[in-house]
Design a protein around this nucleic acid. Structure first.
Lengths: 195, 195
DNA sequence: GCCTTTTTTTAACAAATGATAAAAAATTAA
DNA sequence: TTAATTTTTTATCATTTGTTAAAAAAAGGC
């Protein structure tokens, strides 16, 4: 059974985690969100197409992946509390690199890019909330880049074990391997060396 | 001789490139900027320390680098029009991963983190300017990550040749190699294979 | 110019990862 | 449960990149 939803992972708390909003702006932002229950396997965002919404994950698991010569490479996992979007689509109205699919049945909230941009334009608290959102995503991207540049695949796997055990439990190893930037065979070698 | 400064690379135009500001907010932001002439070799930001300013490069060239087992690895080059900062320091008041040093004599403009945050808090246009800044930096970081994940060192070198020939002319190959995530010996092999 | 120092290239060998194929284990469906 | 399918591991060999050392080329100082 899925764990009982508490106030800790409600959409309202997700918003406050980025930057607490005054009640007026909070209600305004919430009023533009649309709740969706989506089945496992559904493609939320398609590579090469412009995504017109930003999604908040209240429950469920998703992955972003790119198609390339060797098939699909997973570049991101998202779970409860994460925000799901194509940066290129939302920031520049351009087609994104990646597709995003649900790996489990999910409860999502979405807002259209158009609505969110209008809220940014009119309300300074929401503009600063959007700035904080971009800044935190940038810190995550920087961390990700540094890991890829400076750590070995073995270290990155170990980091996942320590920092994101939930992902490892919920996802098959082929996806993990491509997320780490190595082949599944290589990941299998790393795992057997750890025993 | 350095090229003559035109309106194209003034600090004022750098700001508008991120997001054009109304004249009131533009003047306000400019009034907080301090002009500096800095000599080649100067360390602007130090790894492990909190950087308290954000810098705009009007003239000159800089690199960010990290110390690690193999010495220094260059992770970024900045030239005319680029903004220079530690993300961790400015966004979270934490010590950053990287040091930034000037590779040429430079003309910089700087603003304190404190002042810029206060402008974000009070002026919606500046808040949205700051949001756009973070969004564009995030797109650059995403591009960088994708390149490292999906392209070979040879392809990354070729991209530099095509997209940033100025950097290649101004910087020694050892820095370029570490920026590409390979050794200088490897870069030399790549270069000789292209002939 | 010439000498010193720094940068770049080349060579030889080691280590890590990729590609492919096949075996083993786990999962799913009837 | 059994059979089919999917996932994971193991093995072999090729390729790429790293390490170290030395030679060649370029840059800087006197």
């Amino acid at each position: 059974m899925a764990y009982k939803a508490t106030t800790l992972n409600t959409i309202s708390n997700q918003i406050d985690t980025i930057l607490p909003l005054p009640s007026l702006e909070k209600e305004l932002l919430l009023s533009h969100l649309q709740r969706m229950e989506v089945a496992k396997g559904k493609l939320i965002i398609s590579a090469g197409k412009i995504g017109h919404h930003v999604y908040f994950i209240e429950e469920g698991l998703a992955r972003a992946f790119c198609e390339n010569q060797r098939g699909q490479t997973t570049i991101w996992f998202g779970q409860e509390g994460d925000v799901m979007l194509s940066y290129l689509s939302f920031f520049k109205d351009k087609p994104g690199y990646e597709s995003i699919e649900l790996l489990e049945n999910a409860v999502l909230y979405r807002i259209s890019s158009k609505d969110l941009r209008e809220l940014y334009r009119q309300h300074i608290h929401i503009a600063n909330w959007g700035r904080k959102f971009a800044e935190y995503e940038l810190l995550k991207a920087e961390q990700r880049f540094m890991d890829l540049q400076f750590k070995t695949a073995t270290e990155r796997y170990h980091d996942l074990l320590v920092n994101s055990p939930a992902i490892l439990k919920r996802v098959q190893l082929g996806y993990i391997a491509s997320y780490l930037g190595i082949t599944q065979v290589s990941l299998s070698r790393i795992r057997s060396a750890l025993k």
